[in-house]
Amino acid sequence: MVTEHSTTALVTAAARGDESAWAELVRRYTPLVYSVIRSHDLGGADAADVNQTVWLRLVEHLDQVRKPEALAAWLAVTTRRECYRMSRLGRRTQPVDPSDGALDGYDGSSAAPDEDLLRTERRQALREGFAQLPPRCQELLSLLTADPPLSYREAADRLGVPIGSIGPTQARCLRRLRDCPALAPYLGLRPSNGTKGGDRDGAVAAGR
């Protein structure tokens, strides 16, 4: 079953021309690419062009993703870079026609924009922190947060390490994530409790 293969095996198989392996990579990683695109406030044709660029780019780089376990980081970095390029082109994003649906789902039309914004920022901070982790941490945390998540036993088999090392390694990786600079602006911060996120704004602004 393709769905049980590790990312490393999928990248290797796709590089050899296995289209089903590619389809599984797409299934696993389009949410990551899409979430990065959305966090850059790109919608519509711009979002679609960035997505297409990233996947076309990956096709050419399959042979060169030397550490396939770092694929998530490669995708996150490439997507972020292409979002930046798109934002510099400033082509179709403005003015936005509100009736075209491009902004549906992630702007001020939602019931709780402050909470949505806070959640979006936090998730982006986590993704940035994740992208800065060592590849082994990224691979392990990817496996343990996947849907469905792997058991410690499965993760140990996948990574070729003793099962007893999984728990301590996970704890160490999560500690690194918690301590990474991307999350620093949020440390010790409490969620908005009716104060409309004034603390958050201050802390986030200070971190930028």
């Binding site: 949410p31 899409y34 959305r38 936090r122 998730r123 993704r127 994740f130 343990l144 947060t145 849907d147």
Partner: peptide
Amino acid sequence: LGAELRAALWDAGEV
């Protein structure tokens, strides 16, 4: 933290 990371990495809404 693991749950938050899972949401950040994989719950991008419907692609």
